[in-house]
Simulated scan of single mutants.
Amino acid sequence: MNTGKYSMFENRLQKVYKHKSKLARRQNISCYRVYDHDLPEFPFSIELYGDKVYVAEYLRRHGMDEEVHEQWLGECLQTIAQILNVPEEKIFVRQRRTMSHRVAGAQYQKAEEEESHSFTAEENNLKFKVNLTDYLDTGLFLDHRVTRSMVMQESSGKDVLNLFCYTGSFSVYAAAGNAASITSVDLSKTYLAWAQENFKLNNFSDKNYYFIHADVKQYLKTLQPCSFDLIVMDPPTFSNSKRMKDFLEIQSDHTELINDCLRSLKDNGVIYFSTNYTKFALDEQNIRAAKIKDITKATTPFDFEGKLKRWCYKIWK
């Protein structure tokens, strides 16, 4: 190993951890991203979930054979354990094939691991089941922390629809904000069950909480006009799941999706729409909205500044 490059990783991690841990303590945040591919030679995403660490290694052509790579990774993990002050048994490592997360289908496939590890993490005094071993994603997208709070603040007395709801974190926040009703829709029964677990963890039980297994594109066509006050939509970049009638490609499909949501909104209703497709261009001209505001910067948490690979918009009917 090139010891010069290795010490660069050590120094960089120490520097970002010192800075971000201070901000996290100040904001009483226990789940946040520490390091995100800062150095090309060390292609990791490192996240803290309370006293546990999730390390995702992005696969690239590193030129190392398997034995050398294992040794390199082992040394990197020792450094991470030392700087973040956590025992190595509390570090969970996954390998990701691409830089892009949230591609439907991929995250639904369970990984073959010796031992499954899920636990309860806290965010904003709310509880969420997090799994650091079985899936490509942990169950809680940390980059939406600010957006979730905005939804909570606007949910009181509202009928809320959460599309592509994943594990229902936006729905939990809406429940914490005293929404009148919450409908969570996803194509994965696994994630809908997970969303229901998150509701139970927070002691939210109400006859007006609905969990619907459906293809969102088709589901939107079935909705009555003026059904909801607030819609959250964070679709995958692409999905061709066999369970869908049609495939989804967010750049070409977002106009229809958003217009179908607008039709389903009550007067003065609002949509929070986000996508992590980096080359995304919003088709404002053909979206039938009263007002559209790019809130990407306003919703970017401190641990993603300069790193965020997603867009976020607030859209009014």
Rank of each mutant, 00 (worst) to 15 (best):
D229Y: 10
D229V: 08
D229G: 12
D229Q: 03
D229W: 09
I231W: 03
V232C: 14
V232A: 07
V232P: 02
M233C: 15
D234A: 12
P235I: 09
P236E: 04
T237W: 05
F238V: 01
S239T: 00
N240F: 00
N240E: 07
S241F: 00
R243E: 03
R243Y: 08
K245D: 07
D246I: 03
F247P: 02
F247M: 10
L248I: 10
L248M: 08
L248S: 05
L248E: 01
Q251V: 10
Q251N: 14
H254T: 00
H254S: 07
H254K: 05
T255P: 06
E256F: 09
E256S: 12
L257T: 08
L257P: 13
I258W: 15
I258D: 11
I258T: 13
N259I: 05
N259K: 11
C261K: 13
L262M: 08
R263T: 09
R263F: 06
S264N: 12
L265P: 15
L265Y: 13
K266I: 09
D267H: 04
D267F: 00
N268L: 10
N268R: 14
N268A: 14
N268C: 11
G269F: 08
G269M: 12
G269S: 11
V270C: 14
V270S: 12
I271F: 03
I271T: 05
I271A: 05
Y272S: 08
F273H: 10
F273P: 14
S274I: 03
T275R: 07
N276F: 03
Y277L: 09
Y277C: 01
T278E: 12
F280I: 05
F280E: 02
A281R: 11
L282F: 08
D283L: 06
E284T: 13
E284R: 15
Q285S: 09
Q285M: 01
N286D: 04
N286Q: 02
N286V: 00
N286K: 02
N286S: 02
I287C: 07
